[in-house]
Design a protein around this nucleic acid. Sequence first.
DNA 1: CCCTGATTCGC
DNA 2: GCGAATCAGG
Length: 158
Amino acid sequence: MDWTNEAIERLRALWAEGHSTAEIGRRMGISKNAVVGKAHRLSLPPRPSPIRRETTGEAAPRPQPVRAPRPAGMAPRLTLPTVAPPPAPVLTPVAAPAPVVRSFPRFSAARACCWPIGEPGQPGFRFCSADAIGGKPYCPEHAAVAYVKARDRREDAA
DNA sequence: CCCTGATTCGC
DNA sequence: GCGAATCAGG
């Protein structure tokens, strides 16, 4: 590859536009290695790399998969698909203790609404237990509030 | 197996 | 300086 000023500029432009190295390579008719190599040499702003490579073949001291304590206020897991967390503090984002499903009677009421009522751990806490519908874990009323679009709860991370 | 980007190293 | 080979994660 003849790295003329034009070529370099083009590389810079495409790189800045956020194309993948392979894509840039395709557009310029060179390999992605050439692209990434040159980009690296030019000290172009690195993309978020999918990996973390060992700097040298030297000691990779990572035998301890230490679980860094997540900053307070940061949601831990919330892998719920489109389900909005119920109002009850059962799904408190910070601690995320045993989810609602636990401690719910698995027999006798296979389709009872498991919407939490009251404060977990406090006397009187119970689940709705009305008839759940459509394979959902909630009764119609609670399903209505549980399965909300869940589009909010974003952009607060920044 | 496809993708990604990063680093290495012979040229 | 160059970039294929290789690595390493998704």
